[in-house]
């Protein structure tokens, strides 16, 4: 199928993009286009205007300073995956991004696009949530920063207004040597997850977990933090017993099913992925720190 008619506009600066969004009726932002273009081709969407933000250089780039990883919204997924700095400071990114689509889609697909599309099974919103990322949004009323937990409103719905665009995502980095794990089950390589779990872990010298973050994609209507499991782990010695208890929390997720897996199944898979991700995190933490 071919896309329905729309008028194409290319913005070369953030203000111009905002101006176009404010002025134009029924406009959609075109970031990497790896979801939007497919939806247009299937005629699921009929925007009157498309505002292309691929020619705004200041929207791309990766910097790390003062314990924060700052990624421009239009930074390509492949650039994040390939970044040596990101790999050193937050190794979970490269590991997770290997599961995000395929090389061709990562070359075009952007982090901001993935966050704004907010597919419930997408990996990047789960990573942002895992890190308590801060999303910067620019609009006609100026700039605002939204915590990732608040950025996610509902199923495929974000806190971004129609005349705003995401410009930057900031990830507070964890202490060097933190443990990390990412486990996903999808029917095929590169597919959206049946269930994916990302976790970060720090512990004290006795192996007791002092800080844990867990996020889950593919199970609920949006990516979620598994705060109950996090709480259950704090203060416990990392190991199979503690992880099994944490995994049991997956049973309480408000899961949603589809043709690839029922709600119940997704919760079961999430529990298994959680155990595996935590186990990886523990082993890496031991090795690293």
């Amino acid at each position: 199928m071919k896309p329905p008619p729309f008028a194409y506009h290319s913005a070369t600066s953030i203000p111009e993009a905002i101006q176009l969004l404010s002025k134009l009726e029924n406009a959609k932002l075109l970031a990497g286009g790896q979801s939007l273009m497919a939806m247009l081709n299937l005629r699921y969407l009929h925007p009157e205007n498309l505002v292309d933000i691929n020619r705004i250089p200041e929207l791309s780039g990766i910097t790390i300073d003062q314990g924060r990883l700052r990624i421009g919204a239009m930074t390509r997924q492949q650039a994040i995956k390939a970044s040596a700095e990101v790999k050193a400071a937050a190794p979970i990114f490269a590991e997770t991004l290997a599961y995000v689509g395929h090389r061709q889609t990562r070359n075009r697909g952007t982090i901001g696009g993935s966050l704004c599309h907010l597919d419930p099974a997408a990996e990047l919103p789960a990573l942002a949530l895992l890190h308590d990322a801060m999303v910067t949004v620019a609009g006609p009323r100026g700039e605002r920063k939204i915590e990732m937990a608040a950025f996610i409103v509902d199923y495929m719905t974000t806190a971004v207004q129609a005349d705003e665009l995401v410009t930057l995502i900031e990830f507070p980095l964890w202490r060097a040597g933190h443990g990390y794990g990412f486990a996903e089950f999808a029917r095929r390589h590169g597919d959206f997850a049946i269930a994916a779990v990302a976790c970060l872990m720090e512990s004290d010298s006795e192996g007791r977990m002092t800080r844990v973050a867990i996020s889950v994609a593919g199970v609920a209507a949006t990516a979620i933090r598994l705060t109950a499991a996090e709480a259950a782990l704090i203060g416990k010695v990392a190991g199979p017993e503690a992880f099994a208890a944490a995994a049991a929390c997956c049973a309480d997720i408000a899961a949603v099913g589809d043709v690839h897996g029922s709600a119940e199944y997704r919760k079961k898979v999430a529990a298994v992925m959680l155990r595996r991700a935590l186990t990886d995190a523990q082993s890496r933490m031991a090795k690293n720190g």
Partner: peptide, 11 residues
């Protein structure tokens, strides 16, 4: 092809 699964070289 996102809903109907044809296996890739990985499967």
């Amino acid at each position: 092809f996102a809903e109907y699964l044809l296996p890739t070289a990985m499967e």
